[in-house]
Nucleic acid binder design. Structure first.
Lengths: 188, 188
DNA sequence: TCTATAACTTTACACTGTAAAAATAACTTG
DNA sequence: CAAGTTATTTTTACAGTGTAAAGTTATAGA
């Protein structure tokens, strides 16, 4: 029995193939294109083939969001991010590089918060951000407030950047600047 | 001709009535309940009665979002908010008091960004936040970065609070605290 | 009063998610 | 190795969605 053939019935690994198709559609055509029929058509199977694997559309999107949180946690791995600023920058960069996926990850009405894999993955990602902040922050405000402040600033920059709302601020006082510069300075 | 009868054909003021129904459904059953059929049914008209007034569902939701930005701007009016901290607190309070509406206001795939009323209303609200920040902030970082940092922190607190993600931070080091306290301290 | 126009309803259609039943392939057991 | 069981996938069906098109009705203006 070869490695990739285990637990393969008709398709091979439809579970993974469906997630791959969903990710492809998400990045190519945005969140609005994540229809069950479009995903299964892209994977070359019937419209209802996802049900045994994910239960329903919400289940599939939850699995996709969990995958996103795993990638976010990897982007914030300790090897690459030593300071809270590094980690904040990695958080925002991930969001800007994966705008649709990031948006899906926080769209609580498209995803099931009780989904075990999703809850675990998001907790892993958030804990990574919080732990480093606690260890490295020296301030007169309580740790919880400092964490909330940093997380909020980082998450806000991510969301506003995705929506294009930071662009006007890159050319406010005449001279034009890059979005990266603005974000770096806002995080400092 | 009475005041409320002007420009009333069959209904009276279906434009306003549809917005009212949509707002009611939004607050009672959340964003997922904003279906054209549900809104028109609530208003007591046929399923397609909204078309002459709003064009399509996106148009109706854009008008509702514009209304939300007007209310946000009102909540940040200069009479009640003199410092950037005041204004930030008002921004977050509005979001927490109107979670579904606030979410809709920033859901760019449910709303038409080119909608004139929406663009005008959101610009009004954002300008109010930005102007005060420029006038009151004294810092070594450029104004644009300071604005981005404050706006991001405020917006991030709003979004994270709505999603319930700040709750774990209110009881981090043993003693429990209120969400309001956490937000106030994070904004200071 | 007659006509034009705007608001509204009715009808129709292509699309959605998913429940239920039928078919198919793989694993398990005798 | 054969038979039975189980899991996967397809087919079929249905209630629901947004909205285009045509038909109806009420209002405004001449």
């Amino acid at each position: 029995m070869t490695a990739e053939a285990k637990s393969s019935y008709h398709h091979g690994d439809l579970h993974k193939a469906l997630l791959h198709s969903a990710r492809t559609l998400l990045e190519r055509d945005g969140i609005g294109s994540l229809k069950l029929r479009a995903i299964t058509r892209h994977a070359g199977v019937s419209a209802t083939a996802a049900v045994p694997h994910f239960g329903n559309l919400t289940g599939l999107l939850s699995a996709l969001a969990a995958q996103g949180f795993d990638e976010l946690a990897a982007a914030m791995s300790p090897e690459h991010t030593r300071t809270p600023q590094d980690m904040g920058l990695a958080y925002v960069r991930f969001a800007i590089d994966n705008p649709s996926l990031f948006t899906l990850m926080f769209r609580s009405d498209a995803v099931n918060p009780d989904n075990a894999a999703l809850a675990a993955a998001s907790t892993r990602a958030f804990d990574r951000l919080i732990t480093l902040t606690v260890n490295k922050t020296h301030s007169d405000v309580p740790h919880e407030a400092a964490m909330a402040a940093l997380w909020a600033k980082v998450h806000g920059l991510a969301v506003l950047a995705i929506d294009g709302l930071l662009l006007p601020l890159t050319r406010y006082n005449g001279k034009e600047g890059s979005l990266d510069d603005l974000i770096s300075k806002a995080l400092s």
